[in-house]
């Protein structure tokens, strides 16, 4: 099992270099990271996946960027918007993660989108920074939204990833602490382990829906 933080933003986006983030993440119990706009690599036993995050772009541009990154080993994530956009993004081959579902409108993620995510092996990302840093209504809404998403997850079994969105190593949290936060949204330890291990599964080559027998 590979424990992965599904989104970190090293220098120049944040104040911590990629190597330092890797070093600190390792001490907090992680095995790998998805670092945005950095090359794939390995530091001190920590595996770094290259990631791109497509947001605020029309569908045409999203398709172009996804096609450019396809089969390059880059983890492609798309920011969620309205329901139609989310369904289109999920059905695109090469998209791995749909992010920011908590900021999208209320009906942006329904049972049909959940089924599509499960069929296409696209993960839905849960942003832990909102549970950590937000206070009051924002945190309450996030908890409610995540609980709602996890209801669909239990029914349709699409992958879920957990991200710290760390721009500094101070934003990283230990795996044990993440387990504590996830208990608010109805995720037990096995659920957290599964979510932290989801990146490996979504990056694996998709299983063909048709099997040639002979």
């Amino acid at each position: 099992m590979k424990i992965t933080d599904a989104a970190v933003f090293p220098y120049p986006y944040g104040d911590t270099s990629l190597r330092r983030l890797a070093l600190e993440a390792k001490s907090l119990g992680f095995d790998s990271l998805i670092a945005m706009d950095t090359p794939t690599g390995s530091f001190d036993g920590m595996e770094i996946f290259s990631g791109i995050h497509v947001q605020d772009a029309p569908m045409r541009d999203v398709i172009a960027r996804v096609n450019r990154a396809k089969d390059s080993g880059t983890v492609v994530s798309v920011a969620a918007r309205d329901n139609g956009f989310n369904r289109a993004a999920i059905s695109l081959r090469g998209v791995h993660i749909l992010r920011g579902i908590q900021t999208a409108d209320k009906n942006a993620f329904d049972h049909v989108t959940a089924k599509m995510a499960a069929d296409n092996n696209v993960a839905i990302d849960l942003d832990l920074s909102l549970l950590i840093a937000a206070r009051g209504v924002v945190r309450q809404r996030t908890i409610h939204r995540y609980r709602d998403i996890l209801t669909f997850e239990r029914r349709f079994e699409f992958p879920v990833t957990l991200s710290s969105y760390a721009r500094s190593y101070l934003d990283l949290r230990a795996v044990r602490e993440i387990t504590g936060f996830c208990s608010f949204i109805g995720m037990d330890i096995s659920g957290v382990e599964k979510a932290l291990d989801a990146v490996g599964r979504i990056m694996a080559s998709p299983v063909s829906s048709v099997r040639v027998v002979s």
Binding site: Y11, D15, T16, S17, R19, R20, L23, F43, S168, Y169
Partner: peptide
């Protein structure tokens, strides 16, 4: 006075 967190390798 912005603090950066680096490693020796960096």
């Amino acid at each position: 006075a912005h603090r950066l967190f680096l490693t020796r390798s960096d």
